Amino acid sequence: MSRVSTAALWIAGVGLVLMTGFVAWQVFGRYVLNRSPSWTEQGSVMLMSWFIFLGAAVGVRENYHLGFDVLLYVLPKGGKRWLRMISDLVALAFGIGMIWYGSQLVALTWGATLPSLGISGGWDYVPLVAGGALIVLFTLERIVLRLSGAPIDDALDELPPAEVAAELDTANVKV
């Protein structure tokens, strides 16, 4: 899964760079050439979908997703484990929903053509399905590791609360 995560992160990064190039080309075409290319806007939006959903999936694997961690600071270690398991199950359900509803959107729009790109409109929603599939894989990996007894939460349990971490970080700043 580490290789899949790294590949997704690289693809997302390349997509971000390409999108930046597309937008720069659009601005150059509009203001310098007085002829804006029609494909750059739709291409940029599609690339943005890819890097957002791939990056979000990697964020789920690396435990950078949004969470409500207040209870984690007061619960004993066993309670933290179950709260994190619930969080993973919610992320898993969300990923399944992305696959299910994203697939329906792909099917509904597959017959339409994006005029500026000349490809099926379903490609607009394929990143949603791909990101959902990766979220499912990455959360299943974490759930299986946790259930097998792997110490995946130990490093998280040793982290100080965000407020304390911010104060520690500020205290180490040299003026």
Rank of each mutant, 00 (worst) to 15 (best):
M1D: 10
T6L: 11
W10L: 15
W10Q: 13
I11H: 07
A12Y: 05
A12S: 13
G13K: 02
G13E: 01
G13T: 07
G13C: 06
V14S: 12
V14Q: 09
L18H: 01
G21K: 02
F22G: 07
F22W: 03
F22D: 11
A24F: 03
V27C: 08
G29D: 07
G29Q: 02
Y31N: 14
Y31I: 10
V32C: 03
V32M: 05
S38D: 12
S38H: 03
W39R: 07
W39L: 15
T40Y: 14
T40N: 15
E41Y: 11
M46C: 12
S49V: 05
S49P: 02
W50N: 01
F51E: 13
L54N: 09
G55C: 09
A57G: 14
A57E: 14
G59Q: 09
R61H: 05
R61F: 04
R61Q: 12
E62C: 08
N63T: 09
Y64Q: 10
L66H: 13
G67N: 08
L72Y: 01
L72K: 00
V74A: 06
L75K: 02
L75Y: 08
K77P: 07
K77M: 05
K77E: 15
G79R: 00
R81D: 10
W82L: 12
W82N: 03
R84V: 05
I86E: 11
D88S: 14
D88A: 13
L89N: 01
V90S: 07
A91G: 01
A93G: 15
A93R: 03
I99P: 04
Y101I: 09
G102N: 08
S103E: 04
Q104A: 12
Q104Y: 05
V106R: 08
V106H: 11
A107D: 15
A107F: 08
T109H: 10
W110E: 15
W110H: 06
G111M: 04
P115A: 07
S116Q: 11
L117W: 09
L117S: 09
G121R: 03
G122A: 02
D124F: 01
D124L: 05
Y125G: 06
V126R: 10
P127V: 07
L128D: 00
L128N: 03
L128F: 04
V129N: 05
A130F: 04
A130Y: 00
A133M: 12
A133K: 02
L137N: 07
R142L: 04
I143T: 01
S148H: 01
S148T: 13
A150C: 04
P151D: 14
A155C: 03
L156I: 11
E158L: 12
L159P: 02
P161Q: 09
V164L: 14
A165S: 11
A166H: 13
E167P: 02
T170L: 14
V173K: 00
V173Q: 06
V175Q: 02
